[in-house]
Nucleic acid binder design. Sequence first.
DNA 1: GTTGAAAGTGCTACAGA
DNA 2: TCTGTAGCACTTTCAAC
Lengths: 153, 153
Amino acid sequence: MSVRLDEIDRKILGELQRDASQSLDEIARKVGSSKTPVWNRIRKLKEGGIIRQQTVFLDAEALGFEACFFVLIRTSEHEAEWQQKFLKALKERPEVQEAHRLAGDIDYILKVRVKNARAYDEFYQALISEVRIYNVTALLSMEELKSTTMLPL
Amino acid sequence: MSVRLDEIDRKILGELQRDASQSLDEIARKVGSSKTPVWNRIRKLKEGGIIRQQTVFLDAEALGFEACFFVLIRTSEHEAEWQQKFLKALKERPEVQEAHRLAGDIDYILKVRVKNARAYDEFYQALISEVRIYNVTALLSMEELKSTTMLPL
DNA sequence: GTTGAAAGTGCTACAGA
DNA sequence: TCTGTAGCACTTTCAAC
């Protein structure tokens, strides 16, 4: 279900994405409205599931998460049972920040953030002991050039 | 530079990651402290750059961003000038949610979120017209199995 | 770390376009 | 219906202990 948003809704979402700590008054001023309508719109956006979570971004490197891998996975198994087991393993592991099922040659891609290369190896060993995987390629990030979750509305 | 955090700091960050709309009192109660010390800690974490941004996650699909690609890039160019041009192009394009420089065979990986396959093609054409790229592989996401920015503290 | 008080904000009720 | 005004309760912020 796609929700109808007008120009003001889009501006509000833009401001919230940019800085969710702004006050209602501030947002209202920027989008050219006032407190109450903005508050009502935000409530509806939350209820409608458009706004899913309010959170903070932390500096991963400052917190000692110095290694980031993109993991390309091929599997020979495509049964429902295997998929469920694999999905469960991914969800349980906090190192896995993203997981996508892909079209084409490669079946899955993961983004895995860990403290160091050894921690990645531990993750990798644990994963392949839990589920059968045909082929794994790990791409090591040397530098995070850009990172955002902002959608261009 | 890695910053010293104690158990309480880590719990505060955990709570903020989980739900940044909680009140100070609520967080204080959960971490076993009280308002003012928690407030002071959060201020220091912001000043120290540990907390970088407060934002909202939006439902990309509900907003019509139905296509997500991981783009693997090989280039033959490795001069500083080319890199700067490439970096500038990535930063200017809001479709690019993530960009990493990699070690090894593949030079860069991008995560690109767009409304549909045609929008991806427009992005792709624009990119290769701006900077010389030797080889591109696009992996199309069929399903987002997991997506989080939470760090396991 | 605690108390407490001033300033600011979120949320609700209500009235008008 | 949606928008704006007004006000109370709650929260943030910060000084003094």
